[in-house]
Design a protein around this nucleic acid. Structure first.
Lengths: 247, 247
DNA sequence: CGCGAACTTGAGGCGTGTCAACCCCTGTGG
DNA sequence: CCACAGGGGTTGACACGCCTCAAGTTCGCG
């Protein structure tokens, strides 16, 4: 009811430059030369958008015309088929691209919701395509991002299809911590941005099972849990949860 | 022990032309004009390769330098993490691309195995990239294929994460039949190319559960099963398995 | 300070996994 | 042409992991 009313609903027409972004080593333009990045900056109009916690960045069914790169914050992508049936397909954080599943049909296939106040770059897909033709290494990086999402989805399928609850939760935590570590955060301490229910939706488990599993890990001395704050005390032990029969 | 010995292990250096391929309306070059397709034919060296039933097209860890388009036959893509833990991530048939998950790392992440004697086009990735720059609509189609795989993986995650056994099997059959229908096959009759065990691996179920579920569908009058031959007698009923509470 | 949402923990039920026996189909060799 | 072997498929009995339902606690936010 307050400031939300005044915030524009769509893209802020404020130009953002990749070359001066602190995510340039993680995000779309990884590995571009200074000149290439300057070229990208000069041609591609990248807008910026803020999304408040709980708000949707895109809705399923929306026309697809841009991909989004997370600058700051945390998002979930949720697919809904039959009413009531929902599945979180990914959690995205800084430097990760959102909306890639919509290129094919021209419509977004997921709802994307901010889990905390966040900021994204809005990258018009048409411009990205055109610029990819002019800057091969940008094209290459875009393809790598698409491919990375495919490989990540396969890993998620592996977890959903062939792991027990403890293994799924362990894999989830290790994956999350690893991604955060790449971004300069602690490798042993995480503040979860998502609820137990959301973790469960991603892992194909109920929230109670997630909660119980975290409690068990604490009992087993692998980590400390206090609500959404997690401190991993035995990273090796946590990895061993994934090894079927350790020596 | 017979002719297999004489079949070259790698790509047959035989040029294949997209323009004269009967899959051109389904495969990578969908929607290209006659001129564009001629251009593609003249530049891109697409090899061909035969893969016998049970043989691997690629192994996980292999250097990635080509994507493959299925011409004829059927494949499974299997990801293996910890020894013993396996997950089939997809079944591919004619017109579908294989190996897209390997672009990012430069190594294939899956084993791809033929489920019947098959033929693929070998599309060198470097050439595809270059040609995409020259032919925008080819680039667009390639992106759409990448995006389609992402969306398909999300659908698979939805099945694995939030459906019961009956729903998964029904969704699997409907998806399979739909894809085959697009290729001109019957929408009610399928000859499964994969074993119960392989279906189970894809769906996150045990082979016994797959078998039981198919039997139950038969008892319920939705279909006839005889080994790998399936005749869908009540397509509407089968779809209703996916609707939580039908009227 | 108090309400509601999120989380934890317990008890019991159900769906799918496990283990095992049997059947069917195919291919092979006598 | 039949016997046999073997892999794939079916079916049953039972076990167990996760879900369901429910009560109680903690935390965050207005």
């Amino acid at each position: 009811m307050d400031e939300i009313v005044f915030r524009p609903l769509h893209t802020v027409a404020c130009k953002v430059r990749c070359s001066s972004c602190n995510l340039r080593e993680i995000c779309l333009p990884v590995g571009l030369t200074r000149e290439e990045m300057a070229h990208v900056d000069s041609i591609m109009v990248v807008g910026q958008r803020k999304v408040a916690r709980g708000e949707a960045l895109v809705h399923a069914g929306d026309r697809f015309d841009s991909v989004f790169a997370v600058r700051t914050g945390f998002f979930k992508s949720v697919i809904t088929s039959s009413p009531g049936r929902q599945q979180i397909t990914a959690f995205q954080t800084s430097g990760e691209l959102i909306g890639l599943g919509g290129i094919d049909t021209g419509r977004h296939e997921v709802d994307v919701v901010a889990l905390e106040d966040s900021q994204v770059c809005v990258i018009p897909y048409g411009e990205l395509e055109a610029l990819g033709r002019a800057v091969p290494s940008l094209q290459r990086q875009f393809h790598r991002h698409l491919s990375r999402e495919i490989a990540a989805d396969h890993e998620a399928m592996m977890q959903l299809g062939s792991m027990h609850a403890e293994e799924r939760v362990a894999a989830f935590l290790l994956n999350l911590v690893h991604r955060l570590e790449t971004r300069g955060f602690s490798s042993t301490s995480v503040l979860l941005r998502m609820s137990r229910d959301e973790i469960g939706s991603f892992l194909g488990l109920k929230l109670e099972t997630v909660s119980r599993t975290l409690s068990k890990f604490q009992t087993d001395g692998l980590l400390f849990v206090r609500q959404r704050q997690i401190q991993i005390t035995d990273p090796v032990g946590l990895k061993q949860v994934l090894e079927p029969a350790a020596a």
